[in-house]
């Protein structure tokens, strides 16, 4: 049963499989059925099934006080990326040539009268007959081809390029880009097992569709400056993904005011992490 009111819908929060009532989780978009252990995620209007995995801790004994932070993991479609970049660059180069041609105009500056009389005593340069000059500001700044090829080859050599989008609740949204960029840069190996939801876990508040939008910006922010600053390329580039994004909980260990990623090997301030699952459920 649902009540529909001008675009908003309030629905009974029930497991779509067994009909059991799901726990109220505040801002969380993922709900785990206590009866059948299935997971459901909010996506727009409906609850849909979702798989939540948990990253396996790389080596050594697992520390006791582990905090699990959810990330969406989106896999870039690399062949498509290479082909799109190649198409865009060709198009931009073609435009650049046409702009350069258009920018070449006949040099119609008046010849210097002294030079005409053979008295060019101060070295004024005058255009020879039929000369052309370039109108400044008509060029498109393109990244160096060699650097772009090298960059594309580097990420293609990896076979798989994953972008990590922080899905946990956070008091500041910019942390999604900074932490996502850190994790993406580290390129951690993704070994996962289905999550049982045990232990301290931050609630996911970002939906899959939103994660894919964020992944685009995180991916671009990992580009070298010479490529990333080329607006003509970046604005035209639509990132395609090889598969649906995965929701994976990564282990972090608190150290004073920071938490350390056991997979990525970096630290982030603990205050950037918002509500945890048990806190939300109890409030």
């Amino acid at each position: 049963m649902s009540m529909k009111t001008d675009g908003l819908t309030v629905q009974r929060l029930q497991c779509q499989h067994c009909g059991a009532e799901l726990p109220v989780m505040g801002r969380s978009i993922v709900f785990r059925c206590a009866a059948c252990r299935r997971l459901w995620a909010a996506s727009g209007e409906h609850l849909g099934p979702v798989r939540v995995d948990r990253a396996v801790i790389p080596s050594g004994p697992a520390p006791g006080d582990i905090l699990h932070l959810p990330f969406w993991v989106a896999e870039i479609d690399l062949p498509r990326l290479e082909s799109d970049v190649s198409k865009i660059m060709n198009s931009l180069r073609h435009t650049q040539v046409r702009l350069a041609e258009a920018a070449l105009v006949p040099d119609d500056r008046e010849p210097d009268p002294l030079t005409e009389l053979g008295l060019n005593l101060i070295g004024i340069e005058t255009p020879p007959s039929g000369a052309q000059r370039i109108v400044p500001g008509a060029a498109i700044a393109l990244p160096p081809s060699a650097e772009l090829d090298f960059f594309l080859r580097t990420i293609a050599d990896q076979g798989i390029f994953r972008v990590f989008v922080p899905a946990f609740d956070s008091p500041g949204e910019q942390v999604r880009l900074s932490v996502g960029r850190l994790m993406t840069h580290r390129r951690p190996e993704l070994r996962t097992a289905p999550s049982d939801g045990a232990g301290r876990t931050a609630v996911p508040v970002i939906q899959a569709a939103e994660a894919l939008i964020l992944a685009r910006y995180i991916f671009f922010s990992t580009f070298p400056a010479s490529i990333g600053s080329c607006a003509a390329l970046i604005d035209r580039l639509e990132v395609q993904y090889a598969a649906e994004p995965l929701l994976v909980e990564f282990p972090f260990v608190p150290h004073g005011g920071e938490v350390e990623s056991l997979v990525g090997g970096f630290h982030i301030p603990a205050r950037t992490i918002g509500a945890l699952a048990e806190e939300t459920a109890s409030s």
Partner: peptide, 11 residues
């Protein structure tokens, strides 16, 4: 009752 707030696209 436990309730879920859905937010479909639209104004």
């Amino acid at each position: 009752a436990a309730l879920y707030v859905a937010a479909p696209a639209g104004v």
